[in-house]
């Protein structure tokens, strides 16, 4: 089932009204919007913003764990970590491609990231201080990312939904690898157990912030849910993550750093303490411990290698097949 693929109609014209009606019907029937279908400009912009932010997060997210690639403490761990960081580059590629189906351009989106005009997940602005951080990022950060992303496999925009299916499968793998590393470390020396607890203490609250501001302060949620771009509110997903994670923490033998964490029998949920939203705003606003470092690395990869990209283009032009 596909929508009419007419050229963009002037706003308010009778043609646009028909297209809008078809779009609304597609969304209402929970069917997918595809790249050639007509879509309202707001829907397109919201998607580009969300998909680009997601792609940027994958690429910037390579850095915190990537910082341990050279020093991974066993060859097996090095191979696992390298494969994971490589998967993240792959996720970035699918997502930039999904954004390109909406008319965006990867190089332009990268420029926007570097210039601070588009954001990425605030979680990657924290440093990775020990090897336990690699495991905790897998367990908590990838775990939170999956909670956010699994519903996106049903996103109304086809290319994004399909990219998310593959991304989620791989993220799920990463989450288990992270947890397996932590289980191994908890079975190791006292020093290793202390490293794990310290990493949990540092990453727990930032992981909860990954779901975004509380529902009453999330300006885009209502429209995104109406459009089927988002499927659950930030607070719903955050609660789901906490409920999932508390038993895992117990099994692992670590303490989550929240004295208010308590089981609410009536509601069937774990209640948790207040999140420091001022910290979230500081980090999102560029004042996190690693914001400048992350962007500087991305900028250097672009600028230091610009001559390589130019060479590849020049070579491709010279050696283009000339049609007979």
């Amino acid at each position: 089932m596909s929508a009419p693929t007419l050229d963009r109609q002037p706003a308010g014209s009778p043609g646009e009204a028909a297209l809008q009606e078809h779009f609304d019907a597609t969304i209402a029937a929970d069917r997918r919007i595809e790249p050639r279908d007509w879509m309202p400009e707001g829907y397109r912009k919201t998607l580009v913003r969300q998909v680009a932010q997601h792609a940027h997060s994958e690429i910037i997210g390579m850095q915190p764990e990537g910082d341990w690639l050279l020093a991974a403490p066993s060859l097996r761990r090095k191979a696992v970590l390298l494969a994971k960081v490589q998967d993240e580059a792959g996720h970035g590629l699918y997502l930039y491609s999904a954004a390109e189906t909406l008319g965006a351009d990867r190089a332009d989106l990268t420029d926007k990231l570097i210039e601070g005009r588009q954001k990425y997940s605030s979680i990657f602005n924290y440093p990775t201080l020990s090897y336990a951080d690699v495991g905790v990022i897998g367990w908590l950060v990838d775990g939170a990312a999956i909670c956010n992303q699994v519903p996106l496999c049903r996103s109304s925009y086809g290319p994004y939904a399909r990219a998310m299916i593959r991304v989620c499968k791989e993220e799920s793998f990463h989450q288990r690898q992270g947890y397996e590393l932590l289980m191994t470390m908890m079975g190791g020396t006292d020093e290793q157990r202390a490293m794990v607890q310290d990493a949990v203490d540092r990453w727990w609250w930032p992981s909860l912030m990954m779901f975004g501001p509380p529902d009453d302060e999330s300006p885009n949620t209502a429209q995104s849910m109406a459009w089927g771009i988002k499927r659950h509110t930030n607070d719903e997903l955050r609660q789901r993550f906490v409920d999932m994670t508390v038993p895992q923490a117990r099994h692992l033998g670590v303490t989550l750093p929240d004295p208010d964490l308590a089981w609410d029998e009536a509601a069937g949920h774990w209640r948790f303490g207040a999140i420091d939203w001022d910290e979230f705003k500081r980090v999102i606003g560029g004042q996190g411990p690693m914001n400048a470092v992350r962007i500087a690395r991305r900028r250097a990869a672009r600028d230091d290698n610009a001559w390589v990209v130019e060479a590849a283009s020049a070579y491709a032009r010279k050696h283009e097949e000339v049609p007979a």
Binding site: I59, M62, Q63, G66, L69, L70, L75, R76, K78, A79, L82, A83, V85, Q86, A89, G90, G92, L93, Y96, R297, A300, A301, D304, N305, V308, V309
Partner: peptide, 29 residues
Amino acid sequence: LTQWITRAPELEEEVAIGNIALDLLGQAR
């Protein structure tokens, strides 16, 4: 090769370098 990860000219090259480094790491093991 791993030193290029997060520093490569293109994302496709991140993936390629990662592959090559993983192959070599496998041989080394």
